[in-house]
Computed example of a mutant assay.
Amino acid sequence: MEKKKNRIKALLTPGEVAKRSGVAVSTLHFYETKGLIKSTRNSGNQRRYRRDVLRTVGIIKVAQRIGLPLSTVSDAFSTFSDDHTINKNDWKKLSSSWREELDNRIRMLIALRDQLDGCIGCGCLSGVDCPLRNPGDKLGANGTGARLLLDE
């Protein structure tokens, strides 16, 4: 019996990447359409990914977990060449810039939370006076009635 060698495959199938990264194959295809990851095609026209895609998918998942939009991730990745493997120094730069965005979001959420405390006693969510829904009656200038469901 011939002993199997521990060979590291240069390219991975979508199924292998999905299994190792914990995302669905359809998610990999979605990331690819957004330009976040890249694949090549084999002679049978099947997708194959470089091994470093596992690190890239991991970074995407971390970014999503902290609430960053994929457009922010895409912008960050656009600074790298297609054949670049993200390394420790790259991660420091990415996480530093994302930290600033996350800190800004935290400040905004704390301010919203503190404004919400003021509404608890009122309960009216007045269309004119509510500092959360319509600060300074900015919607009143557009006429009466509902104007929008969510702030832009």
Results as ranks from 00 to 15, higher is better:
Val17Phe: 00
Asp114Pro: 01
Asn104Gly: 12
Ser71Phe: 09
Asp90Thr: 01
Lys61Ala: 05
Gly67Phe: 07
Ile86Val: 10
Arg7Trp: 04
Lys93Gln: 13
Lys88Cys: 15
Asp103Ala: 04
Thr85Phe: 05
Cys122Lys: 06
Val128Cys: 02
Gly118Thr: 06
Asn134Lys: 00
Lys93Pro: 06
Lys61Glu: 08
Val62Arg: 08
Tyr49Arg: 00
Asn45Gln: 10
Arg7Met: 13
Gly58Asp: 09
Asn6Leu: 14
Ala10Asn: 14
Asn87Leu: 08
Glu2Met: 13
Thr56Arg: 13
Cys122Gln: 07
Asp83Phe: 05
Leu125Tyr: 01
Gln46Tyr: 11
His84Val: 06
Gly127Ser: 12
Pro135Asn: 05
Glu152His: 06
Thr72Pro: 11
Gly143Leu: 09
Ile110Ser: 09
Leu94Pro: 03
Ser96Asn: 06
Trp91Arg: 15
Ile106Ser: 11
Gly58Val: 09
Ile8Phe: 13
Ile86Thr: 02
Lys34Cys: 12
Tyr49Asp: 01
Leu54Glu: 05
Asn104Lys: 15
Gly67Lys: 06
Arg147Ser: 12
Leu150Met: 09
Ser39Cys: 05
Ile86Glu: 03
Val53Trp: 00
Gly140Phe: 05
Glu100Thr: 10
Glu32Arg: 02
Asn45Glu: 14
Ser97Asp: 08
Val57Glu: 02
Ala10Tyr: 07
Trp98Lys: 08
Gly136Ser: 09
Asp90Pro: 00
Ile8Gly: 09
Leu132Arg: 00
Ser126Arg: 00
Ile60Asn: 01
Asn42Met: 07
Ser97Arg: 13
Ser96Ile: 03
Asn104Trp: 13
Phe80Thr: 11
Pro14Ile: 05
Arg65Phe: 09
Leu12Met: 04
Ser96Met: 07
Leu102Tyr: 13
Leu70His: 05
Leu68Gln: 05
Ala146Asp: 13
Thr79Met: 12
Gly140Cys: 03
Gly58Asn: 12
Thr27Ser: 14
Ile60Glu: 04
Asp82Met: 03
Thr79Asn: 15
Glu32Asp: 13
Leu36Phe: 03
Gly145Asp: 12
Lys3Trp: 08
Phe77Thr: 02
Glu152Arg: 09
Ala18Glu: 00
Leu94Arg: 05
Gln46Arg: 14
Gly143Trp: 05
Val17Ser: 01
Ser74Pro: 01
Ala146Met: 15
Cys122Met: 05
Gly127His: 03
Phe30His: 15
Lys61Thr: 06
Leu12Val: 01
Arg20His: 14
Asp151Arg: 10
Ser95Ala: 11
Glu100Asp: 11
Tyr49His: 00
Trp91Cys: 15
Thr27Cys: 07
Gly67Glu: 07
Leu112Met: 10
Leu109His: 13
Leu36Tyr: 02
Leu109Ile: 05
Met1Phe: 15
Arg51Lys: 09
Asp137Ala: 10
Asn45Thr: 01
Arg105Val: 03
Ile120Met: 04
Lys9Gln: 14
Pro69Met: 10
Ser81Gly: 15
Val73Glu: 02
Ile59Gln: 02
Gly44Asn: 10
Ile59His: 00
Tyr31Lys: 06
Gly140Trp: 00
Tyr49Cys: 00
Arg99Ser: 08
Gly140Ser: 07
Leu116Asp: 06
Ile86Phe: 07
Ser126Asp: 07
Val57Gly: 01
Glu2Asp: 15
Asp117Arg: 04
Ala76His: 07
Ile59Arg: 01
Glu16Thr: 04
Asp75Ala: 12
Ala24Trp: 01
Asp83Val: 02
Asn89Gln: 15
Ala10Cys: 08
Arg51Val: 10
